[in-house]
């Protein structure tokens, strides 16, 4: 009797397990297929993409789009523009965030709780409630069609990053910093030489997410940038679509694909990192 029960239980769990695999394989296919389709489309001649007899694979393979895209829009310039925003914002912004977090976590500061609370309240304010004055100010300064409006705010740090760093620094023993103080280190020096090296993994994880956010930012660039030469990648590809009347799908898909490669490459390289950072950010682990 007991034996029989055990066997049936085992059969049930085998069935459940194979069913799970079946579901997951279907799901994995659903997740990957659009990418495959995007890449395959980039190798199609234009006519094939708008024919009602749709084929997943190209009938005639061509790499024409990969040549054209550099000629029709300043695509290389778009990459450069995106990086012009990314590099200073990530480097300076991460540093100012870490420095601020250090003051909150490890130093005596008047009204520190109130200041932090006020700063954190900015997370509640949607960009939609801020961009009209920002736009008006920048355009009166002649700074539209300029990358500065996208760079400047980031230089002053990122409050959700600050919050994350404060939590992380909470786990670092203050005794380490006290020892440095006895050695005659100033606060800035102990931040630089003791805290920063310890904070490195947390900073890298947060910076990667920020990099992603800037790379994919569409709203602000679409407001400030109307000339192709100054456009970052996302609005530029949208422009590519608009100027082609949305008809040259292989070309548009090529832009979409090329603009995704760096992100996916970074992700696949640092995959483990991403997962843990994600759970830490949300406070689940």
């Amino acid at each position: 009797m007991e034996k029989k029960f055990k066997i049936s239980n085992k059969t049930v769990s085998t069935v459940v397990l194979s069913l799970s695999y079946a579901i997951m394989i279907v799901l994995a296919f659903t997740m990957i297929f659009p990418y495959l389709y995007m890449v395959l489309t980039t190798f199609k001649p234009m006519g094939e993409t708008v024919s009602p007899e749709l084929k997943v694979f190209p009938i005639v393979w061509t790499a024409e789009s990969y040549k054209e895209i550099w000629q029709l829009v300043p695509f290389g310039r778009g990459i450069l523009n995106t990086m012009t925003v990314e590099v200073p914002v990530i480097l300076v912004g991460t540093f100012t965030s870490a420095l601020g977090a250090y003051a909150f976590a490890k130093m005596r500061m008047p009204c520190s709780k109130i200041i932090l609370l006020v700063l954190m309240s900015s997370m509640m304010v949607p960009f939609a409630a801020l961009f009209l004055p920002q736009y008006q100010i920048y355009s009166s300064l002649g700074l539209t069609n300029n990358l500065l409006p996208l760079i400047l705010p980031g230089l002053f740090g990122n409050i959700s990053m600050v919050f994350f760093f404060i939590q992380f620094m909470g786990g670092i023993p203050t005794a380490l910093l006290e020892a440095a103080k006895i050695d005659g280190c100033g606060h800035f020096k102990s931040f630089l030489h003791i805290m920063l090296p310890l904070l490195w993994p947390a900073m890298a994880a947060q910076a990667v997410f920020w990099f992603l956010g800037i790379w994919n930012d569409y709203f602000a660039p679409s407001i400030y940038l109307t000339k192709e030469e100054v456009m970052t990648l996302q609005p530029l590809i949208n422009r590519l679509n608009a100027t082609q009347g949305g008809r040259d799908l292989p070309l548009v898909m090529t832009g979409a694909f090329l603009s995704s490669i760096p992100l996916i490459a970074v992700y696949l390289a640092f995959q483990k990192y991403f997962m843990s950072a994600l759970s830490i950010t949300s406070g689940i682990k």
């Binding site: 990418y35 996302q234 979409a256 995704s260 996916i264």
Partner: peptide, 10 residues
Amino acid sequence: VTSVVAVNYI
């Protein structure tokens, strides 16, 4: 981790 434009266009 895919470009926003890409996801929307596909």
